[in-house]
């Protein structure tokens, strides 16, 4: 067990001050669904836990003409109950809905999912295809970075000592655009993704794809953006051939490992299947908006 010092500051400034001034290892606590389990494995250590959930801005989400300003600690349960957000970013909401069980979603946050920096994090591919941005606050002020550049390795990210993720900013999707996220797990729930794929697609009035983004998870040390898989959609009607090309591009871009959740071979195959199916769903959603 770890010996814990617990603080729940009321402002981001106080949180940053606590984090940067700490003499023992300081860690941000959001929903705790990753962190509390990780701490169980530690023996004879001390930790300062800085709980951000008492900071109102961390727990709110605003959807306006700019897009979505998502407080990184808002629970997935609260986020997925927001119909307004779901209608704009259905893929992101379905990713948040996939995290753990109802109980886990009662605590787990998108910010925690991102900052835990697992390549299998379900919301990350969906954030990436929506061009989401991280706003980071630290002792030397505020900076922003695209979500795809945030994680640097398995469990590693670009946060420096004293820094925290203060906001996730997601621009409004362009007109006639929608997204989808799919993951593969052996059961129907309660598993960590063996592979995941998010796709965002824009179609013109003739149903031709004019823009696309494809991102895949759990098949490399970090979540990947697959430009090639997006390219092959451009100019197509997202038909069977285009979808097959998406699958191939996604599989090709992956560099998975073999572990208890799947073999490299299997992951490489399945990520293609997911990318293709997600693309088809996203396209179908756009057609739904158009009709």
């Amino acid at each position: 067990m770890v010996s814990v010092v617990y603080e729940a500051p009321a402002s981001v400034q106080d949180a940053v001050a606590l984090l940067s001034g700490a003499e023992i290892t300081a860690t941000v606590l959001a929903g705790g669904t990753d962190l509390i389990i990780q701490m169980q494995g530690l023996v004879n250590e001390s930790r300062l836990l800085v709980d951000l959930k008492k900071i109102p801005a961390m727990m709110e989400a605003t959807l306006d003409a700019e897009g979505l300003q998502l407080g990184p600690c808002m629970s997935c349960a609260e986020l997925t109950s927001r119909e307004d957000i779901k209608s704009v970013y259905p893929g992101l909401i379905e990713a948040a809905y996939l995290i753990g069980s109802t109980q886990i979603q009662g605590r787990a946050s998108v910010g925690g999912n991102l900052c835990n920096s697992s390549p299998a994090a379900d919301t990350v591919p969906a954030l990436i295809v929506n061009n989401a941005q991280c706003v980071i606050v630290g002792p030397s002020g505020e900076r922003s970075i695209q979500v795809e550049d945030f994680a640097t390795g398995v469990g590693q990210n670009c946060l420096e000592k004293g820094e925290l993720l203060s906001l996730i900013r997601i621009p409004l999707p362009a007109a006639n655009t929608s997204d989808a996220y799919l993951r593969f797990i052996p059961r129907t729930e309660m598993d960590i993704a063996v592979a995941g794929a998010a796709v965002s697609i824009t179609l013109d009035d003739d149903g031709i794809c004019t823009a696309a983004r494809v991102s895949i998870g759990a098949v490399a040390p970090t979540v990947l953006v697959v430009a090639k898989a997006a390219e092959v959609l451009l100019g197509t009607k997202v038909d069977v051939q285009a979808l097959q090309a998406v699958a191939e591009a996604a599989s090709k871009a992956s560099s998975p490992i073999t572990d208890r959740r799947g073999t490299d071979e299997y992951r490489r195959h399945v990520v293609g299947v997911l990318a293709k199916r997600a693309a088809a769903i996203a396209a179908e959603r756009v057609r739904g908006i158009q009709s």
Binding site: P186, R187, T188, E189, M190, D191, I192, R260, R261
Partner: peptide, 11 residues
């Protein structure tokens, strides 16, 4: 129980 996968209600 996350990776030793016993059946769930939803399965």
């Amino acid at each position: 129980f996350l990776d030793y996968r016993i059946p769930l209600a939803s399965d």
